[in-house]
């Protein structure tokens, strides 16, 4: 992918870190404030897309990013599934929350049992999945050539 002009590159350089940070914040605080894995993951994917659109990249990098994001997407999905199954083995039923991990005091960052962990899993999954789609659509010439 070719890069974009100097203005776009400078502004993206300033913004992308903040975007990533905000995406992480939304994901991690999903059990306390509005938001969660889906919204945070979309923000993370948007930051990654902005960087690769503005700065451009060579074929090798695209390929590595594509493989990495595919793996991360499956990893997030598996993580979520394992959390659900953990409730099944420890407690009595699928998606059992109380008793799997300690619940913590409400309104603290470490609270809510598996909910923050599930939010992180969904955040990774959504961010990596959307970025993989973006790479496939925008850079398929580079990425998919055998």
């Amino acid at each position: 992918m070719p890069g974009m002009s100097l203005i776009v590159r400078v502004i993206t350089g300033l913004m992308s870190g903040l975007l990533l940070l905000y995406g992480g914040y939304i994901t991690l605080h999903g059990h306390l404030t509005p938001g969660g894995g889906f919204a945070g993951g979309v923000l993370i994917a948007a930051a990654l897309m902005a960087v690769s659109l503005a700065f451009g990249s060579v074929e090798q990098v695209e390929k590595r990013r594509y493989v990495l994001s595919s793996v991360l997407e499956s990893f997030g999905g598996l993580w979520f599934l394992i959390l659900a199954l953990a409730g099944y083995f420890v407690g009595e039923f699928f998606f059992r929350n109380a008793g799997v991990f300690f619940l913590g005091r409400p309104l603290e960052l470490v609270s809510g049992g598996i909910i923050p962990l599930a939010n992180i899993a969904i955040g990774i999954k959504v961010g990596a999945g959307l970025f993989a789609i973006f790479l496939a659509l925008g850079a398929s010439r580079f990425v998919m050539k055998e």
């Binding site: 999903g30 059990h31 979520f80 659900a84 998606f95 913590g104 609270s111 809510g112 599930a118 789609i133």
Partner: peptide
């Protein structure tokens, strides 16, 4: 659930199965 955000409590605890389905839909789309 210990989660202050009631939406998170519903989608990831009470109705976690639905969220798993949603994640599967996204996975299938990708």
């Amino acid at each position: 659930t210990g989660a202050a955000n009631v939406v998170a409590a519903i989608i990831l605890d009470f109705r976690g199965y639905d969220t798993l389905g949603e994640a599967t839909v996204l996975f299938t789309a990708v």
